[in-house]
Amino acid sequence: MSSPDLEWDVLLSLLGGGFVAAFLHAALPTHWLPFVLVGRAQRWSLTRTLASVGAAGVAHIASTAVVGGLIVAAGLALDQWVAGILPNLSAILLFAFGTFYLIRAVVRRPAPLTADGPTLELSEPTVSHAAAFWGLVVMLAVSPGEVLLPIYMSSAQEGMVALSLLTLAFLAGTLLGMGLFTTLARAGASVLRLERWVRYEGAILGLALIGIGLLVVLHQH
């Protein structure tokens, strides 16, 4: 039987892994580039742009938590019929997602993105500020973070407290990643060459997910 200290160490590792996975997932261009482009088109201040980032990030994790909760509930019900299937299934999914991102990073050659993004003519905004704001929020609300769902499954046996903490770790990583890259891109931080990050973030995310999967497997033995 595992000691309480070991269980706590495993939980902290999963929370740390969840934070890293959420941060790397939030670094995908779809999670920050639209906010930069819409913010410029609407002539928003940085504060207003980051407000849309924050609202969209919360909506993104909320929808992820809802879907994750449903999957966990279904998995726990299934686990009563097939003992031990839930942790193994979560590890398989983590390996699968990690491998997918690694292969896509090798095969796919994304076009370079400059920190300044595409050139936009600063004409008058064509939509209202409210429509632009809520459009960005809905964009992420209807697309739960699929790569985060297996991590919910791997923590299902830890109880509601662990799942709640994991959701907070996802939220912190998501908001930090989205806010950081939005701010850097908006500031035109070309010296950081964000396009290089865009080129390699898939491989990094894939390795992180495989690492979390290995942690789940080791926890079972």
Rank of each mutant, 00 (worst) to 15 (best):
L86D: 11
I103H: 03
F100V: 03
T126L: 09
A74E: 00
S3E: 14
I85P: 00
G16E: 05
Y101H: 12
A22N: 03
R196L: 13
V137H: 07
A169D: 01
I210T: 05
A132I: 09
R109P: 00
P112H: 15
N88S: 15
T114G: 15
T119A: 13
G54L: 12
A22M: 04
I210M: 12
L76E: 11
T119N: 05
Y101A: 10
M1R: 11
F133Y: 12
S52D: 13
H60P: 10
D116T: 15
G39D: 10
S128Y: 02
E201W: 11
G188C: 10
L175S: 01
G188S: 08
W44R: 09
A59R: 08
A77V: 02
L136T: 09
L194P: 06
I210N: 02
E158L: 15
P87V: 14
F95Y: 14
W134D: 06
L176R: 07
R193E: 13
G159A: 14
L86Y: 09
T182M: 01
V36Q: 07
S2G: 01
R48G: 10
P118D: 13
H31Q: 12
G17A: 01
L93C: 09
G135N: 09
R193L: 06
A62Y: 03
L163I: 07
W8C: 06
W8Y: 13
V20Q: 05
Q80S: 04
I71W: 08
R199E: 13
V198S: 07
D116N: 15
S164M: 09
G68P: 11
L209H: 05
A22I: 04
S128K: 03
I204K: 07
L70A: 12
